[in-house]
Amino acid sequence: MSTFVYDGDCAFCTRCAEFIERRIPTDARVVPWQFADLDQLGLTEAQCEEAVQWVGSDGSRASGPDAIAALLASSGPVWRIAGVGLRIPPVRAVAWPAYRWVARNRHRMPGGTAACSLPQETRDRLYGPSGG
């Protein structure tokens, strides 16, 4: 079974996962990394803290917007089209910077809380000293 892994400590991420579970028909498990068997999935905490992760039933792996595209591709026809669209090179080129911006600002997003904010040290490591 395919698995989509997100940060369960982040309210914004959890709200997005709840949306997926309610609105996007997929057979994939949608699970917070804190409750996933990361060893079995071949993932590390660092990978899961950095971005959402996809582990396909076929062994494929993806992270960030590529993981979202894989999840969408595993769902119903309308969402599948969105997943294909997210993989088009010009769209994908914009998706990664947009994903990183959302990740840095997820505590400011609807449903986000201060708990969603990555520690400054982590933001600096991932995105550079300015966090932007």
Rank of each mutant, 00 (worst) to 15 (best):
S60F: 02
D9H: 09
R23S: 13
Y127S: 01
L86Q: 11
Q120L: 10
T122P: 05
I68P: 00
E50L: 01
A28Q: 09
P77H: 09
C48A: 10
T26S: 14
Q40V: 04
T3S: 15
G131F: 00
D9F: 06
A93D: 03
I88N: 04
R29C: 09
A115K: 06
V5T: 09
A51Y: 00
A62P: 12
A36G: 13
A69W: 11
P97K: 10
R22A: 09
S75F: 08
Q120S: 11
A62R: 06
Y99F: 14
P97S: 13
G42T: 01
M1D: 08
A36F: 12
T113I: 10
A115E: 07
R61S: 05
G8H: 09
M1L: 14
G112V: 12
S57W: 10
G112T: 13
A70T: 08
S130P: 00
F19E: 00
A82H: 01
V91Q: 09
V84L: 14
F35C: 10
A93R: 12
Q47M: 11
A51V: 00
C16G: 12
E121M: 00
S57I: 01
P110N: 13
G8P: 08
D124F: 02
W33H: 08
S75V: 06
F4T: 04
R61I: 06
A82T: 05
D9R: 15
A17Q: 07
V52K: 02
T14D: 14
W101R: 09
S2Y: 04
I81V: 15
S117E: 15
N105S: 05
F4S: 05
Q47Y: 02
R125N: 06
